[in-house]
């Protein structure tokens, strides 16, 4: 484990794993999409519209998971100053922001036919939107500071503050919503989900996870090469001497 945390070892190790992970991701995506869009039965109330769930739900899950990874890697980077952790935190942010935006957009596309509106100030929607702004703030801060390492460490402080505040934001928003009005729209997921829909959902979740890992590895490897460019190992690797 300790070996793996050296930038060079991480670079070589991730290079070996990148292809298998990417292939597995592609396979899961194709299987999940076919299963979810063709094989799974239509919903008795929502017809075929519910199928957007196979993209929406995994991206919402990943939006939170990536934030947790980002904050966790940031904490490791702050405490032990491990370069790989810095790179992982920094590379995760845009991916997480993209998942969050995707969750919001697909939710909005689903909301129009189902709820009759693109947006409601529902607790979950609002806290997801605030999560997007936490990601964007993280990225803005990282961009604004010239020195890359300082930027990542400063952004890590922000990510940790956000990680403490995120549950509070979520519950306060939930309270705010219930204070104002009762939900006027039935939310999907009130009945327990049937196995024929759950299985493709889980495959899609796996596909999204794999997509995150592959993208993270690609971004982290590039970032690592750039940050370590003065180190001899980068020259060796780039000249093809492993």
């Amino acid at each position: 484990m300790q070996q793996l945390l050296a930038p060079k070892n991480f670079y070589l190790w991730s290079g070996r794993w990148l292809r298998p992970v990417a292939w597995a991701t592609g396979l899961c995506t194709l299987t999940g999409l076919y299963w979810g869009l063709v094989v799974a039965p239509p919903d008795y109330q929502q017809g075929d519209s519910y199928r957007i769930m196979f993209v929406h739900v995994p991206s919402a899950w990943m939006s939170l998971f990536v934030y947790a990874v980002m904050a966790g890697a940031g904490a490791v980077a702050l405490v032990w100053r491990i370069k790989v952790a810095e790179v992982v935190a920094s590379a995760s942010a845009p991916i997480g922001a993209a998942f969050t935006a995707l969750a919001l957009m697909t939710g909005s596309l689903w909301g129009k036919p189902m709820w009759g509106t693109w947006w409601v100030w529902d607790a979950r929607l609002t806290s997801e939107l605030l999560l997007l702004f936490l990601y964007l703030g993280y990225m803005a801060l990282e961009q604004a500071i010239e020195d890359r390492r300082t930027a990542t460490r400063a952004a890590a402080v922000l990510a940790l503050v956000g990680a403490v505040d995120l549950p509070i934001i979520h519950y306060s928003v939930e309270w705010w919503h219930t204070l104002h009005q009762a939900p006027t729209v039935t939310r999907f997921g009130a009945p327990a989900i049937h196995g024929s829909m759950l299985a493709p959902l889980l495959v899609m979740a796996l596909a999204f996870f794999g997509y995150y890992v592959s993208l993270l590895l690609v971004r982290a490897r590039c970032e690592l090469l750039e940050r370590e460019r003065t180190n001899p190992w980068v020259g060796e690797v780039c000249r093809g001497i492993p």
Binding site: F133, L134, D165, V173
Partner: peptide, 12 residues
Amino acid sequence: LLLLPLYVPILI
């Protein structure tokens, strides 16, 4: 930009 999302619980 950094602070406004964090301020939400206080405001609520």
